Structures are given as structure tokens and as C-alpha cells.
Simulated scan of single mutants.
Amino acid sequence: MSKPSMPLWFKIAVGAAILWTLAGVFAYYSDVTISEETLAAMPEAQRAAYEMRPAWVVGAYAIAVFAALAGAILLALRKKLATPLFALSLAAVIVQMGFVLFGMNVIATLGASAAIFPAVIIILGAAMLWLSMTGQKRGWVG
């Protein structure tokens, strides 16, 4: 029995998820390969926050972006394994951003605006998980 056809809005959302997660992988790569010159050019507070991150936080970042990319690709291929990968990614993002914002006290150092982009990332991670679960529920994925 074949799966029902995915609606256009779902295909567009999956395409956007792939692009977003590719951007996340690029951001991760840029983060872990940052040059000494770029690091030196950062404002002192930002550089200090960057340098004091524990390795496990960077590891959570890697899990978040690579699990999300794999989930987005699998979602495009209509595979139900996308859902647990998005859930893993979201959990890793929450761990990573939670520690950066609260464990490292970045909000006090850089201001409340430092929480905006992490909040957007968490919301989009939840949206990708919702998208995958919706695809499964409606029979488009699985």
C-alpha cells in the first residue's frame, strides 16, 4: 500500500528544514574551526563566553545539528526515524542553550537580547519535531 501524497506545504516545510539544518551544520563547523584572528576580534565578553564553554556543550551542539540534518533528510525520504532524531536534536539544543544562557550566565554578561536567537532555535527545533510527528500521524511519513 502506498503512502498518501504529501501536500505542498509539507514539502516546502521539509525543504526549509533541510536548508535550516544545513545552516546549523555550517554554523557548527565555523564555530569549531574559528581562527585566532576572529576570536581576537570578538568583544571581550563574547570571547570569554566562547572560551569558557565546556567540551560537552560543544558536543551537545554537534548532536543537535547533525541529528537535525539527518532527521530533515529522512523526513524528505518519508522515513519515520526522522521523529526520534528530531527529538534527540531538540533535547541536545535545550541542554546546550540552557547551559550557555543560564549555566554560563550569558544573559547577565551580554544582555537579554542574547536569549532571542537561542529561543528561535529551540522553537524551530520543536517545529521540526512537530512536522515529523504530523507527517507520521497523517500517513505521509512512515
Rank of each mutant, 00 (worst) to 15 (best):
1 M>P: 04
2 S>E: 10
2 S>C: 03
3 K>Q: 09
7 P>L: 09
9 W>M: 05
10 F>P: 01
10 F>D: 00
12 I>T: 04
12 I>M: 13
13 A>L: 11
15 G>D: 06
15 G>L: 07
17 A>L: 07
18 I>D: 09
19 L>E: 04
19 L>T: 06
21 T>D: 10
22 L>D: 14
24 G>F: 07
26 F>Q: 08
27 A>Y: 13
27 A>N: 14
28 Y>R: 01
28 Y>C: 11
28 Y>I: 10
28 Y>N: 11
29 Y>R: 10
29 Y>H: 12
30 S>Y: 08
30 S>C: 15
31 D>P: 10
31 D>Q: 10
31 D>I: 10
33 T>M: 05
33 T>A: 04
35 S>E: 15
35 S>N: 10
35 S>L: 05
35 S>G: 13
35 S>T: 15
36 E>N: 12
38 T>P: 02
38 T>L: 05
39 L>N: 14
41 A>C: 15
42 M>A: 06
44 E>P: 07
45 A>H: 08
46 Q>P: 00
46 Q>S: 14
47 R>C: 12
49 A>K: 14
51 E>K: 08
52 M>G: 07
52 M>E: 15
54 P>G: 10
55 A>V: 15
56 W>H: 12
58 V>H: 12
58 V>L: 11
59 G>A: 06
59 G>M: 00
61 Y>C: 08
63 I>D: 02
63 I>R: 01
63 I>G: 04
63 I>L: 06
64 A>C: 09
65 V>F: 04
65 V>Q: 09
68 A>K: 10
70 A>W: 11
71 G>W: 01
71 G>Y: 01
71 G>N: 01
72 A>Y: 03
72 A>I: 00
72 A>K: 09
73 I>F: 11
74 L>S: 09
75 L>A: 12
76 A>G: 13
77 L>N: 13
77 L>E: 14
78 R>Q: 11
79 K>H: 12
79 K>I: 10
81 L>M: 13
81 L>V: 15
81 L>E: 15
83 T>N: 07
83 T>C: 11
84 P>S: 05
84 P>R: 04
85 L>I: 07
86 F>R: 01
87 A>D: 03
89 S>R: 02
90 L>S: 11
92 A>L: 04
94 I>P: 05
94 I>D: 00
97 M>Y: 11
99 F>T: 13
99 F>K: 06
101 L>H: 03
101 L>W: 04
102 F>G: 11
102 F>A: 12
102 F>Y: 08
102 F>E: 12
104 M>F: 06
106 V>W: 01
106 V>P: 05
107 I>Q: 04
108 A>D: 13
109 T>D: 14
110 L>W: 03
111 G>I: 12
114 A>M: 11
114 A>I: 10
114 A>K: 09
114 A>E: 13
115 A>T: 02
115 A>H: 03
117 F>T: 13
118 P>R: 03
119 A>P: 05
119 A>N: 00
121 I>H: 14
121 I>L: 15
121 I>V: 15
123 I>K: 02
123 I>C: 03
124 L>Y: 12
125 G>K: 00
126 A>H: 03
126 A>W: 02
127 A>Y: 03
127 A>K: 08
128 M>S: 13
128 M>A: 07
128 M>F: 15
131 L>A: 08
131 L>P: 08
131 L>C: 08
131 L>V: 14
131 L>G: 11
132 S>W: 02
134 T>N: 14
135 G>H: 02
135 G>R: 00
136 Q>R: 09
138 R>Q: 15
